[in-house]
Design a protein around this nucleic acid. Structure first.
Length: 869
RNA sequence: GCGGGCGUAGUCCAACGGUUAGAGACAGAGGACUUAAAAUCCUUCCAGUGUGGGUUCGACUCCCACCGCCCGUACCA
């Protein structure tokens, strides 16, 4: 018996698709594509790290299923691929190899492109680009200038982490215990003037429009809402009883002014101007500030919840009850960069304030109680949700029993009317700082002129390309120290001037690539006809780790592009539907080993290094010693549980990898890669091939056969319906299970005769077409074997015959008091009365009723009959 | 703390509020074929849905509480 040889068949079919340009999306108007409805499916483009991993395989397999199914279903599909190619790893690699980031990046792209192609993805490769291509970033620079003109950008000072040895800015994640991750030098805070996108101008719009994103997971929508973090509150000045450090009052921000009756102290941040002023004359304040500063940089987690403070000795008047005074404390828990850096403490309704008050023996007074209760707060603060109704105690604005939200709103109105404070809407969202003091990014196209100041580069001078003659043998930004690159002329006055040497955050690159795919070679950022046709992306697929930043930035960018005419208003939400897929996990193998210094640590082994010797028992091949199987965790280098997709494709073929990635686990959940599972997948694909080759060779048979042919037809058409629905709903695991079911039915089909021949033929044709989105190469091979002259990719999706989806006769269970007692066979559309009569006539039912009449008879058409007595 | 999700056979997973909880896969057991092995085929074991209430004629499914696990997020005033 011959076997399916994926290694031989897969390249053959990929070549056939490529030769025919099957996946190139025609947009030139002379193809049928423009007449068909459009469908844009996009997976988050990869960073060219060097090799694809199983997470990519899963991500792109899912997108490919959608792309292929939609194509077969008559859509003009846009399914492109590109590279998120700027970023630090390329610079690090250049440093290590004394090479150039571009060299490393493009070599990685070449390698990964081959790997992705080996997966057999239905991608329009003619649209490929990398964000580090000057052709791409030239357009980004052009848009940057448009954004500048449209006042979507601003320059302001921001504090950054500065590594004095590497002479570079570090991201927060690169600062470990206050030191640079690479140099180990103590990181300094430095204020630099940087570019910011004015995303906060869109805070309200970005928040409100989340409600329209009904194709997004609720989880992601919640995360975006929280990130934007809208709150309505009020700024209240608390007058100091005697002015200090030139201040007459402390301005506090609160979202709970309704609890002002319970205010018992003021807490200011150690970084508050008043704290700083006091520390100059008061040593204890200075010491406390120093303590807080150090604690801030070390592991906060270690001593979290420890709320500490010192009394300044100052006091303020209560704004509503002026004869009351409140002490002013400096609290380590008050953040300078949120609100005003000063809060009033209301211990009764804030656990943190309560802990603080109990510790330092400050008064606790309730501002409200729950209805029907009047106990005062003990060790737990009373913090009901804002929607809950509470009973205010002796409220200064005359509020009685109402929800907290109502209480807050009315208090703010009242206080504004009394001129006691200013109502405010605040957002947690900050403007998006995009300046990076790095080489491998998109240069910011502005010039610094001694006379004219900051001047945007002229568009005809774009792109401002990165110089190639740079080295990474010294710390710092190569653009900064390049001998000539930054010297230029002022676009306005023509005098000697200097280029900006900062480059853009790589999130900028990925914030509009989906639009560029619509016309990747256009000489403007977008071609309006093309983006209007293709956007929004109908289905976006990627990891949950991008739930906030990438997606929020893209939403902002689409709005900014609409404002500057690069997109239509209809596309301000760039991703109509979003799917976040789970991770690929694998078992880990490890043992504790002593290092030379005698320190015990966990050493991990790769799956190839261990052998399974029994149920859950593993040994190391090298020494035969036992290893423990650890958790099933995301594939990672540190846990050494990575399976290389190349190895899997070489051993079993791409279809097996795709099939297994889509089996079993629901796509949004994690999937565990197991050797046994992969082998099972490969075995199944062999079985399908064998069954179809047998069916293809089956000689026509005489005779009439029996009902089996009709049964197979029903199974076939039900599978068509179910799989079509499952794919559309991202239930790939169920679609796969259905395909197993159909395969089993075909394997068990032994009927002979003309009708049987036809039914079998129909079944194997359907099986082939239905499998094609998951295992496209195998499907082509089978399709050819079945004698078809065209390819599967040129063939329409099968359509279920509704007549075969319903049974004429159905068997209904008859329950008595919820327990099944009998069965009746009735016509599917039989009347209720008739069904009820038949059920009541059943011998078992008659017996149980024993002459009594039933209390109730429930007939669920096509489902069940329940007799209640 | 808060927010979200998940608890069903040894494992991964199914089950419009409806039959005796089972579509499918993995693993296990037995057998057939074979000189043998691989491959293939056949047969088969195993759970009553985390716990406790409630709603319902009927609950894996809906509601409430609790337990466990996972993810996200936070001194946000």
């Amino acid at each position: 018996m011959t076997r399916y040889d994926a290694g031989q068949a897969e390249p053959k079919w990929r070549k056939a698709w490529a030769d025919k340009g099957c996946f190139e999306t025609d947009t030139d108007g002379d193809s049928a594509d423009t007449e068909r409805p459009k469908y844009y499916v996009l997976e988050m483009f990869p960073y060219p790290s060097g090799r694809i991993h199983m997470g990519h395989v899963r991500n792109y397999a899912m997108g490919d299923v959608i792309a292929r199914a939609k194509r077969a279903q008559g859509f003009a599909v846009l399914h492109p691929m590109g590279w998120d190619a700027f970023g630090m790893p390329a610079e690090n690699a250049a440093m290590e190899r004394n090479s150039h980031p571009a060299k490393w990046t493009y070599a990685n792209i070449d390698a990964m492109r081959e790997q992705l192609k080996a997966m057999g993805l239905a991608i329009d490769w003619s649209r490929e680009f990398a964000t580090c291509d000057p052709e791409y970033y030239a357009q980004q620079q052009s848009m940057f200038i448009d954004f500048l003109d449209a006042d979507l950008l601003t320059r302001k000072e921001a504090v950054v982490n500065w590594d004095p040895v590497d002479m570079t800015v570090l991201a927060n994640e690169q600062v470990i215990d206050g030191r640079g991750w690479r140099s180990g030098a103590t990181v300094e805070k430095r204020a630099l003037t940087q570019w910011f996108f004015r995303i906060t101008d869109f805070a309200e719009e970005l928040l409100a429009d989340i409600d329209t994103l009904d194709g997004w997971p609720e989880k992601v929508r919640v995360m975006q809402r929280n990130w934007i973090g809208k709150s309505r509150g009020i700024e209240i000045p608390f007058a100091l009883t005697e002015s200090s450090a030139g201040m007459d009052a402390i301005l506090c921000y609160t979202t709970r002014p309704d609890t002002l009756r319970g205010a018992s102290f003021i807490a200011i941040s150690p970084e508050h101007p008043l704290s700083i002023a006091l520390s100059e004359t008061d040593e204890t304040v200075a010491a406390f500030r120093e303590e807080c500063r150090l604690a801030g940089t070390s592991e906060e987690a270690l001593e979290k919840a420890e709320k500490r403070g010192i009394n300044t000795g100052l006091s303020v008047a209560h704004p509503v009850y002026p004869d009351q005074t409140l002490p002013v404390w400096i609290g380590n828990f008050v953040l300078m960069d949120y609100g005003t850096g000063a809060v009033f403490g209301c211990p009764a309704h804030d656990q943190r304030d309560l802990d603080f008050a109990r510790k330092y023996d400050l008064p606790v007074a309730n501002a409200f109680h729950m209805p029907g209760e009047s106990e005062d707060v003990g060790t737990e603060a009373l913090v009901p949700t804002k929607a809950e109704t509470v009973v205010y105690v002796d409220h200064f604005a005359g509020i009685g029993t109402t929800t907290s939200q109502e209480g807050i709103d009315r208090t703010i109105d009242w206080m504004e009317a009394q001129d006691m404070g200013k109502g405010q809407v605040r957002y947690r969202l900050r403007d998006w700082g995009v300046s990076r003091q790095r080489y491998w990014g998109c240069p910011i196209p502005v010039v610094h002129c001694p006379d004219c100041g900051v001047v945007p580069e002229r568009k005809e001078n774009l792109p401002i390309t990165l110089p190639e003659d740079v080295t990474f043998d010294r710390p710092g930004n190569p653009l900064e120290r390049h001998p000539s690159w930054k010297n230029t002329m002022c676009p306005d006055c023509g005098k000697q001037a200097q280029r900006e040497t900062d480059t853009m955050d790589t999130f900028v690159d990925s914030s509009w690539y989906f639009a560029r795919f619509c016309s990747p070679r256009a000489e403007t950022p977008t071609n309006r006809a093309e983006v209007d046709r293709w956007l929004p992306v109908d289905q976006y697929i990627g990891g949950i780790e991008h739930a906030i930043l990438h997606l929020l930035y893209s939403r902002f960018f689409a709005r900014a592009m609409a404002k500057t005419g690069h997109l239509s208003e209809a596309s301000v939400e760039p991703f109509k539907a979003l799917f976040t897929q789970g991770m690929v996990t694998h078992e880990t193998y490890s043992r504790l080993e002593k290092s030379d210094e005698g320190v015990e640590r966990e050493v991990f082994f790769t799956p190839e290094e261990v052998t399974r010797v029994g149920e859950g028992v593993w040994t190391l091949k090298a020494d035969g010693g036992p290893v423990t199987t650890g958790g099933i965790v995301k594939m990672s280098k540190s846990k050494r549980n990575v399976i290389d997709p190349d190895d899997i494709i070489a051993r079993y073929g791409a279809d097996t990898a795709r099939w297994f990635m889509l089996s079993d686990s629901p796509p949004e959940r994690d999937v565990e890669w197991t050797e046994a599972g992969a082998e099972g997948a490969a075995r199944h694909l062999q079985r399908v091939w064998r069954l179809i080759s047998e069916a293809a060779e089956r000689a026509p048979q005489g005779g009439d056969g029996d009902n089996a042919a009709e049964d197979l037809r029903k199974i076939t058409h039900r599978a068509i319906q179910a799989i079509t629905d499952d794919i559309a709903a991202f239930r790939f695991n169920k679609a796969v299970a259905q395909l197993y079911g159909l395969t089993n039915a075909i394997a068990g089909f032994k009927a002979t005769g003309k009708a049987a021949d036809a039914a079998l033929r129909e079944a194997v044709n359907a099986l082939t077409l239905l499998m094609a989105p998951m295992t496209p190469h195998l499907a082509e091979e089978c399709w050819a074997m079945l004698g078809h002259k065209t390819m599967v990719v040129e063939t329409d999706w099968p359509v279920a015959d509704p007549a075969l989806l319903v049974d004429d006769l159905v068997i209904l269970p008859v329950q008595v008091n919820g327990k099944k007692r009998a069965e009746i066979q009735v016509a599917a559309d039989e009347s209720r009365d008739k069904v009820e009569a038949m059920a009541l006539a059943e011998e078992a039912v008659v017996k149980l009723l024993a002459g009594a009449s039933p209390k109730k008879v429930i007939v669920v058409p096509g489902r069940i009959v329940n007799v209640v007595m």
